[in-house]
Design a protein around this nucleic acid. Structure first.
Length: 1007
DNA sequence: GTTAGGGTT
C-alpha cells in the first residue's frame, strides 16, 4: 500500500480555507479582483463550521476539521478524496479540486501518457509502483492520466512549481532524500503530492488523516495526512515504517521538536529500507514481505537547509536540494529611522493611525508579543479611533457632506492563541460596513493562521519566548528581538493577496546587526526528557551520537538523564526499567506517565485524572481587576451584539469583558480547592466538568467559573484518551465501567495520589524556609510562603493562586518554577519527607548505619534493618530516619536471633525478654554460631523455613535452653506447632494482631 | 496577593 505522509501544514491556510468554505470570504476575493469558483458549490454543506466555532483554533484543530470535511466530501472516490485533501492548499488548490470533481479524473495504471498543461505530452515517468497490499510489483512505469479544464490549466500555469514538475520528480526518483525549498505561496504543498500522485504513488485507495483525538483511516487508505507527533508514535512500534513508501515532511523549516527528531530517525529508516531492499533483491524469495525503498521529501519555506545537509552523520549522501521560485506579491519594507524604540506600542498605534489616514484601503496586521500588549494596544487604538471619529463628525458638520473629511472607523480585533474560539473567528467574519480591519496579534498570526485581506503589516520586531534553564529548572518569559526569517515571514503576510507594505518599528541597522538569521530550533530550548525516554524505548542508547539536525544542549541531556533516573525509568547504566518502558508508551511527559503508572485499580483512574490535569496549563483564568474605561467596554459589547446577533446574554458578555468581581471568583475557585495539591484541585475541577452534560453546558460551566475552555477541553480529551488506552486496549471493559462508576462519587485517595505525584516530580522539590531570611527590602513585604527549591540557591515563593498557599506544607513538589514578578512555584503538591526517600532515592544522601536507634527485625518485610539518617538534594535537607537492610552479617544474625527469641519472628516461640546482661552468656554465642550453616546465613524467616525443611531439629536445643526448666516439658509440643505453622504459610504467623501490636510496642520502647 | 509566545503525542 502506498501511503504518503504529510504532516498537515500550517493552519494558516486551513483557517483561511475553512472560512472560505463558509462563504465568508467572497468579499475579500472580490477585492482581490477575481472570483474563485466555489469548491463546495452544489455539494452538501458540512457542519464542521459550527463545530469550529465552539472549539479553539489551534493548529491541530484546524487540520482536523479541514481534513474531516475534505475526506467526507470526497470519500466515494479515492482520487477525489485525495484531491479533496489538497483543497487546503489555497486558492489554486481550490481550482484544481473543483475541476477534478466535475471532470472525472481517470486513473489508469500502466498508462504511458500524461497530459500536461493542455499541450503536448511528453512526460513519461518511470516510477515503480510497489503495491504492498498486493505484495507484488506492478511491471513497467505507471502514470496517472489527469485531464483538467482550461481554467485550471491557466491557473496552474501561474504557479512556478508546475514548471518544475519534471525536475522535482526526477530528483525524487533519483534520490532517496529530496529537499524542496519554496517560500509561502510557491504552491509546493499543493502541487508536490499531485506530482507524486500522477506518477503513480498512492493512486489506489482512499485518503485518510490522523491527528490527536481524531482518526479517519479506512482499510484501503493509501494516502495519509497526519501530524508529526503521530508519525513519531508510529515509528515507535514500527521502526521500518513498513506501511509507507514516501514520506513528505512539510514546513520542515519550522523546526518543531517532533519534526527534528523525525528527520533524524527517518534518515536511518531510509538507510535501513535500502538495506532491506538490497537483501530481498538478491534472493529469490517471495516478494510477499519485500520492502521497497523509502523516499523522504522535506519541504522547507526558507533556503536555510544547512542543518539538514552539512552534517554527514544525518544524510550520508547529500540530499538533492531544489529551489522553487515564489509566487508572492511584492511587499515594500519600510524601516524606522531610529534604531530601537522602547515604547513600540505607542509607535505601533501611531503607525496604524497614520496608515489609516493616508494610505489606500486594506487590512492592517500588527505584531506584538503577548495578550497584555494585544489588549493594551486594542484599547489604545479604540480610544484614538473614537477621538478621530468625533473630530471628523465636527468637521463634516461644518463642511457638510464633504466626503474627503468623512472618517471611517477602525474595526480593531485582538488575536492570540488563548482567545476563545468565537472571538478568534471574528477576524474572518465580515466587518461592519464602512469600517476597516485592524488585527492586533501575537505570533499566532505569523505561523499558525493567515488573516485574509491584509495589505499592511506593522511589525514591532519583538516576540515573547519562554526560556528554560536546564540546570535549575527556572523558566521565564522574555521579550526578545525576532529573527530575520521571522521578520520576513511577518512581512510576507502583507503580500498574500496583492502588493503590500510592511512597516518595521526598528531600523535597518538593528535588523542587520542585531537580528539573528534564524530562530533557534525548539529542541535547543525545551526539556528533552520525553525525547530521551522515547529514544531509549526504541533501542537508541547513545543519544549523544544521534544525528539530530541540531543537537539538544549537553545540559539538557544531562538534566533529562537525571530526571529519568529520579523517576525510576532508567537504571544507573542508562538501561530502561520495566516502568520506564511502560512510561514510554503514554502520550504524555514522562513525569505524568509516572504518576499514571503509580498504582493499579481505582487509584489508577484518579492518578490519570491528576496526570491529565498537570499535563496542560493551569485552567484558572486570573481575572483582571482593573476598572478599565467604560466607554471601551461599552464599545466592545456593541460590536459583540452586532456580530453574534445577541445570542450570548448581555450579563455573560459583560462578565467576559470585564471579569467577575474578585470575591465571587475567589469563592468559586475555593469550591474546587484541595488544600494539599494543585493537581487534585484541577482534577476535581476536571471531574465536575466531565460530569456536566452537553458541550454547551460545559462551556457555560467554564464561563461561570472563569476557566479556559480550550484548556479544560483538551484536558478532558487527554483523560479520556488515557483511560481508553489503559482499559480498552487491555480488554478490561468491565473494570473500566466499574472504575468510572466508582469515580463518579469522586473520593480520591489524596494521600496515595500525592505520593504518585511525588513519584512523578521527585526531582522538583522545595522545602519551606524557617525563620524567613529576607534577601532584599522588597522581600520584607511579601507575605507569600518562602521556600527553598532543591534546584536553586535563592528563595522562591508559593504562587498566591496555588491551592496550598494557605496550608504551606513543609515539603512540596512543583511542576514549574516560573520567574515573573518573583520566582514562583506552580503546580504544587504537599509531600511527606519520608516519601522523598521512597520515590527520589537517587537524590538522597544517606549516613552510615546508626548504632542508635539500634537495628531491628521487621516482621512484615521479613528482614533486618538498620537506621540511617537521610538528607535530600544539594541543600542536604534532613529527612526522618530511614531503615535500610543491614549489610553486616553479624548484625543481621544477632538481631534476627534476638527477634526469634522475643517472638517477633514466630509469636509462639516467645520465650524471653532479653536483657542486656544476657548478651555475655554462652547460650547466646551457641545460638549465633548455629545460625550460620555453611554459607547460608539465617537472618530471615524465609531462610529459616527453608533450613527447617532440610533439618527439622536445627536450632532446637539452642532455643530450648532459653526456656525455664519448669516449662521444658511443654517445649516439644511447642516446637512441633511452630514448625507446622512454618510449613503452612510463612505469612500466617503474623495474622495474630494482638501479638503483633505488642511486639511493635516493645520495639518502640527499645528504640 | 498574581502569568501565560506558539506547537504536539
Amino acid at each position: 500500500m502506498f501511503r504518503f505522509f504529510m504532516p498537515p501544514s500550517s493552519a494558516s491556510r486551513s483557517v483561511a480555507e475553512s472560512a472560505d468554505s463558509m462563504g465568508t470570504r467572497r468579499r475579500k476575493r472580490k477585492e482581490q479582483g477575481y472570483e474563485a469558483p466555489s469548491p463546495a458549490a452544489g455539494k452538501p454543506k458540512h457542519s464542521t463550521s459550527k463545530k469550529k466555532k465552539k472549539r479553539g483554533l489551534t493548529k491541530r484543530d484546524c487540520q482536523s476539521l479541514k481534513l474531516l470535511r475534505l475526506t467526507s466530501d470526497f470519500e466515494n472516490s479515492a482520487c477525489q478524496s485525495f484531491f479533496g485533501s489538497l483543497m487546503q492548499q489555497g486558492a489554486l488548490g481550490n481550482f484544481f479540486v473543483h475541476t477534478c470533481y466535475d471532470d472525472n479524473i481517470s486513473i489508469n495504471h500502466n498508462f504511458w501518457c500524461l497530459e500536461k498543461l493542455g499541450s503536448e505530452v511528453n512526460h513519461v515517468k518511470t516510477v515503480l509502483h510497489p503495491d504492498l497490499t498486493l505484495g507484488k510489483t506492478v511491471e513497467g512505469p505507471s502514470v496517472v492520466h489527469v485531464s483538467r479544464s482550461s481554467s485550471i490549466e491557466e491557473a496552474r500555469k501561474g504557479l512556478p512549481i508546475v514548471m518544475m514538475e519534471q525536475e522535482i520528480m526526477e530528483a525524487i526518483n533519483g534520490s532517496s532524500i529530496v529537499i524542496i525549498c519554496g517560500e509561502t505561496g510557491s504552491g509546493k504543498t499543493a502541487q508536490v503530492p499531485q506530482f507524486l500522485y500522477e506518477a503513480g504513488y498512492g493512486s489506489r485507495g482512499t485518503v485518510g488523516y490522523q491527528v490527536r483525538h481524531e482518526k479517519k483511516i479506512r482499510e484501503d487508505c493509501s494516502i495519509k495526512f497526519m501530524t508529526d507527533g503521530i508519525l513519531l508514535r508510529e515509528l515507535q512500534s514500527d521502526l521500518l515504517l513498513r506501511q509507507y513508501s514516501i514520506i513528505i515532511i512539510d514546513e520542515a523549516h519550522e523546526r518543531s521538536l517532533s519534526t527534528d527528531i523525525l528527520i533524524g530517525m527517518l534518515s536511518r529508516v531510509v538507510w535501513l529500507r535500502q538495506q532491506q531492499e538490497k537483501m530481498h533483491a538478491g534472493s529469490e524469495a517471495s516478494s510477499e514481505n519485500a520492502l521497497t525503498v523509502l523516499k523522504l521529501v522535506l519541504m522547507n519555506a526558507t533556503l536555510h537547509v544547512e542543518d539538514f545537509i552539512s552534517d554527514r552523520r544525518l544524510f550520508h549522501e547529500p540530499p538533492a536540494v531544489l529551489e522553487v521560485p515564489t509566487r508572492q506579491y511584492p511587499v515594500t519594507i519600510h524601516f524606522s529611522r531610529k534604531g530601537d524604540y522602547g515604547d513600540y506600542l505607542r509607535l505601533a498605534s501611531k503607525k496604524v493611525i497614520q496608515i489609516h489616514r493616508t494610505l489606500p484601503l486594506g487590512g492592517k496586521l500588527v505584531f506584538v508579543t503577548g495578550k497584555g500588549e494585544v489588549d493594551y494596544l486594542c484599547q489604545k487604538l479604540r480610544k484614538e479611533s473614537q477621538r478621530m471619529e468625533r473630530v471628523s463628525k465636527d468637521i463634516t458638520a461644518v463642511l457638510e457632506d464633504n466626503e474627503a473629511f468623512k472618517y471611517s472607523g477602525l474595526c480593531i480585533l485582538p488575536l492570540y492563541a488563548m482567545l476563545p474560539a468565537d472571538e478568534q473567528l471574528r477576524v474572518f467574519r465580515d466587518i461592519p460596513e464602512g469600517q476597516r480591519l485592524v488585527v492586533v496579534a501575537t505570533n499566532v498570526a505569523e505561523t499558525s493562521l493567515t488573516i485574509p485581506g491584509i495589505k499592511y503589516v506593522v511589525d514591532s520586531g519583538r516576540e515573547k519566548v519562554k526560556n528554560y534553564n536546564h540546570r535549575n529548572g527556572l523558566a521565564a518569559y522574555e521579550i526578545k528581538w525576532i529573527s530575520k526569517a521571522s521578520a520576513a515571514q511577518r512581512a510576507g503576510r502583507a503580500g498574500r493577496t496583492g502588493p503590500g507594505h510592511c512597516y518595521r518599528l526598528y531600523s535597518s541597522a538593528v535588523f542587520g546587526n542585531v537580528f539573528s538569521d534564524f530562530s533557534s530550533p525548539e529542541i535547543t530550548k525545551v526539556p528533552v526528557t520525553g525525547v530521551l525516554l522515547m529514544m531509549k524505548s526504541m533501542g537508541i542508547d547513545k543519544v549523544a551520537s544521534f544525528p539530530f539536525p541540531t543537537p539538544p544542549q549537553a545540559a539538557a541531556l544531562t538534566e533529562a538523564d537525571r530526571c529519568l533516573k529520579a523517576l525510576e525509568a532508567v537504571v544507573s547504566k542508562g538501561r530502561l526499567t520495566r516502568i520506564g518502558r511502560a512510561m514510554s508508551w503514554y502520550p504524555m511527559s514522562p513525569r505524568h506517565s509516572r504518576i499514571a503508572l503509580f498504582q493499579s485499580n481505582l487509584v489508577f483512574a484518579y492518578a490519570i485524572a491528576s496526570a491529565a490535569a498537570l499535563s496542560l496549563h493551569n485552567p484558572f483564568i486570573i481575572p483582571c481587576h482593573s476598572r478599565g474605561n467604560n466607554e471601551n467596554t461599552r464599545e466592545e459589547l456593541d460590536i459583540d451584539n452586532e456580530r453574534d446577533g445577541g445570542r450570548v446574554s448581555p450579563p455573560l458578555k459583560r462578565q467576559r469583558v470585564m471579569g467577575k468581581p474578585k470575591p465571587a471568583v475567589e469563592e468559586n475557585h475555593l469550591r474546587f480547592r484541595n488544600h494539599n495539591s494543585d493537581a487534585l484541585t484541577v482534577s476535581y475541577l476536571l471531574q465536575l466538568h466531565d460530569l456536566t452534560g452537553t458541550k454547551v453546558e460545559k462551556e457555560e460551566f467554564c464561563r461561570e467559573n472563569l476557566l479556559h475552555v480550550k484548556t479544560i477541553d483538551e484536558m478532558s480529551k487527554l483523560r479520556k484518551q488515557l483511560l481508553e488506552l489503559i482499559f480498552h486496549l487491555g480488554g478490561c471493559d468491565e473494570e473500566f465501567h466499574g472504575v468510572m462508576e466508582a469515580q463518579r462519587m469522586w473520593n480520591p485517595p489524596g494521600r496515595i495520589l500525592a505520593q504518585a505525584i511525588c513519584a512523578g516530580w521527585a526531582d522538583r522539590v522545595a522545602k519551606r524556609m524557617q525563620g524567613c531570611p529576607k534577601s532584599s527590602d522588597k522581600d520584607l513585604r511579601v507575605r507569600a510562603a518562602r521556600y527553598q527549591s532543591c534546584a536553586l540557591g535563592e528563595t522562591v515563593f508559593l504562587h498566591p493562586s496555588s491551592s496550598v498557599s494557605h496550608s504551606r506544607p513543609e515539603f512540596v513538589v512543583y511542576t514549574e518554577l516560573l520567574c515573573t514578578k518573583r520566582s514562583y512555584l506552580h503546580g504544587v503538591t504537599g509531600v511527606k519527607p519520608e516519601w522523598l526517600v521512597k520515590y527520589a532515592s537517587s537524590l538522597c544522601n544517606f549516613s552510615a548505619p546508626l548504632l542508635e536507634p539500634r537495628p531491628c527485625y521487621d516482621s512484615l518485610k521479613d528482614g533486618v534493618f538498620c537506621w540511617v539518617r537521610p538528607s535530600f538534594g544539594p541543600h542536604l535537607w534532613p529527612l526522618p530516619l530511614h531503615g535500610v537492610p543491614a549489610e553486616n552479617d553479624m548484625v543481621r544474625i544477632s538481631i534476627f536471633a534476638c527477634a526469634l527469641l522475643e517472638g517477633n519472628v514466630l509469636p509462639c516461640l516467645r520465650c524471653i525478654m532479653l536483657r542486656p546482661e544476657s548478651l555475655g552468656q554462652s547460650r547466646v554465642f551457641n545460638l549465633l554460631k548455629k545460625m550460620k550453616v555453611g554459607n547460608v546465613i539465617i537472618d530471615r524467616r524465609a531462610i529459616l523455613c527453608e533450613a527447617w525443611r532440610k533439618n527439622p531439629q536445627l536450632l532446637r536445643s539452642e532455643i530450648q535452653c532459653w526456656f525455664q526448666e519448669g516449662f521444658r516439658h511443654l517445649f516439644d509440643e511447642l516446637w512441633e506447632e511452630c514448625r507446622r505453622r512454618f510449613s503452612w504459610r510463612v505469612s500466617s504467623f503474623f495474622l495474630w494482631p494482638r501479638e503483633r501490636r505488642r511486639s511493635r510496642e516493645e520495639k518502640k520502647q527499645s528504640c
